[in-house]
Nucleic acid binder design. Structure first.
Lengths: 380, 380
DNA sequence: ATGAAAGCGCTAACAT
DNA sequence: ATGTTAGCGCTTTCAT
């Protein structure tokens, strides 16, 4: 009985243009085949049509259907091609990506790990990654570490299961973890051919896109000194966070070369609240007019600005503030924030290229000091 | 010769604790098996270990290995379990997600479509989705439409191939497309059991999380009127964009009920530049002091603020500005932006729940008018 | 409790 | 040019 039902169904849907001329194949479906079909009825809501369905509907073999639908080099006669395409369209067929991936042995995904997707820094990077992926027809899988190392390791492990083409890590506390759980997972991933891309100066093993934090911060420091600032408070992330360390070192070098000195270094993380808290603390201990605050990321600097305002002090001639990154809101706060422009979307794009290009070398990522109203020239 | 190599390799790695007691199975590997192994050498860099490898290493069957590693109900003797776990750890095994998905017939991913991930509005929503997904052990795949309908349709189609558990669309121009290509793709997806979640008042078909734009905007309009404003310029997206239409209608109703009137409506999209451009145009045509500008999203309002400042006008008592959403930078611009707080991360989280909960009903999403310095009370 | 084997939907030799 | 068939790595009956 099952056979009959199945066969009937085939006939039912068999309204091909010129169905009469359909090859024997379609009619001569083996009994074994019809049985297996009957067991798993197609098109019951909840199951998408398979290539098998398309092939049957079009009266061609699986192989032919596969060839026309899923980009093969091999050629198929026009009449067959049309039939298959029509059947696919009628059924609303879309290739099952998982099945394709297991059959092909590779999956068209690239994995992106960020600390916090709502943070503009990561949002911009993600946009660049997404653009690159789209160009290559790859899908990006995104995960959020929330700056939690344990979570990060868990996520890398989960992502490994996807056998992604590449894994971009823009999240780590230290930017380049070496003996953490994350590092171990990353190593396993890389061991079997996965490509890991990180940011900052990395090991020789992984590719990494480098933002020249040191140089950018040094240029900023010099500028600030030349504007007349002599005493600075730096607010950054914990020691060991590469980005933070580099920016601090660079700024210090530049600022000191111009005769300034970094008198206090406050640490937290790269979040707005962290910047606000650090600044409140500083304010509580007293901050001289004419002091410059260097937030090691714009988000931190903006948090600091809020704290300054809350304390009833004025930003600019009273307490000057500068940041790093040039996220969009830096030009919208007022006074607008002096900062170092980092082409973050391009950074993300570069990271993507690093995962897919066989012979990749980083394109230059020009940093640019942008002086705005938050650091007026000191006239004294 | 191939057999010998393969068998030798098995022996080589066979250093189980108590290997002597290993079941016959491991030693008695059939010739067929060793042949197939030899054909596809494992552990050559580039191929991750498979369950097969783990099973062999542990001296158990595929079935047993699967049961201990990949969450089955069925129980396995402690000694076997340990062996399998150790083998897996040694080899650095991680289940191939694609293979699991094809075998299980379902894949643990939820797809998220946003217009622009660098926009804080979408970033916040994405964060909520990601949090929910993580709670359920799901992976989120993200794609960017760049507000391009054709792109959007292409992407939905590609995403369909992933057979995601659910598809969240936070991108559409009209929020609820009905006869677009996207709509057709979405319908196909839904036809086979996929769950699509959109934002805004939707069809009866899809689930949608509703932000009560109308009520929020009405409350804002009333407030603004009570502050003394009488004439407003509204800046929003194109007609037909639901969010924009609702916010405009609500604001108008509220503002007019308080005696105000919306004298100009300028349209573009929800981007910052669009807001700036519209505001420049308005300014060019002349804007009376005491006028209120309503940006239908904060991002637009912030763009407008920039234009106002660039024109040498003052924000607040000269030209007041209010927005909608309360994205983080709204409190950082100065004067700080009056707006309607939308719990965007919660919105994203709700959207996620809507994709996975069998019986889902939207939790309340309280909107809250937040008056800040950009709309000082008018004393006249 | 454990293993053999038949799938899952698709691709890619290998025939024809 | 088209079809057959043996995989891909995994899950899940069904025996034992």
């Amino acid at each position: 009985m099952a056979d009959i039902a199945a066969i009937t169904r085939v006939r039912d849907t068999g309204r091909l243009p010129g169905a009469g001329a359909a090859p024997q194949y379609a009619q001569g479906m083996s009994q074994q085949e019809s049985l297996s079909r009957a067991r798993q009825p197609r098109h019951s809501r909840g199951t998408a049509p398979t290539l098998h369905d398309v092939a049957r509907e079009a009266g061609v073999s699986l192989a032919t259907a596969s060839r026309v639908l899923n980009g093969s080099e091999r050629k198929v006669a026009e009449s067959f091609r049309e039939r298959v395409e029509q059947a696919a369209a009628e059924l609303g067929y879309t290739a099952n990506a998982s099945a394709q991936a297991t059959a092909r042995g590779s999956s068209p995904v690239i994995a992106l790990l960020v600390a916090d997707i709502a943070d503009p820094y990561f949002g911009l990077i993600a946009a660049g990654v997404a653009r690159g992926a789209d160009e290559q027809g790859l899908v990006v899988t995104i995960a959020i570490t929330e700056r939690d190392p344990a979570r990060e390791a868990r996520i890398v492990r989960a992502l490994r299961g996807q056998r992604p083409q590449g894994l971009i890590l823009a999240a780590s506390r230290t930017d380049e973890p070496t003996d953490s759980d994350t590092a171990r997972e990353l190593a396993e991933y890389a061991r079997f051919g996965g490509r890991v891309v990180t940011f900052g100066a990395g090991s020789a093993e992984n590719r990494h896109v480098e933002i020249d934090n040191r140089a950018g911060a040094a240029a900023l420091g010099r500028q600030m000194a030349s504007l007349g600032y002599r005493s600075a408070i730096a607010i950054g992330a914990a020691e060991g966070v590469l980005t933070s360390d580099e920016r601090l070192a660079g700024f210090r070098a530049g600022f000191e070369s111009g005769g300034g000195s970094v008198d206090r270094v406050l640490r937290g993380d790269f979040r707005r609240e962290s910047g606000a808290r650090a600044m409140s603390d500083a304010l509580a201990q007293g901050v001289e007019p004419g002091t410059l605050v260097f937030g090691m990321s714009d988000v931190v600097a903006i948090g600091a600005m809020a704290a300054i305002r809350d304390a009833g002090r004025e930003i600019g001639t009273d307490i000057a503030v500068c940041g790093f990154d040039d996220v969009p809101s830096s030009s919208d706060v007022s006074p607008a924030l002096t900062t170092v422009r980092v082409p973050l979307t391009e950074v993300g794009y570069q990271a993507f290229r690093a995962t897919v290009d066989a012979d990749w070398t980083q394109a230059p990522l020009p940093l640019e000091v942008t002086v705005r109203a938050s650091t007026p020239g000191l006239t004294r």
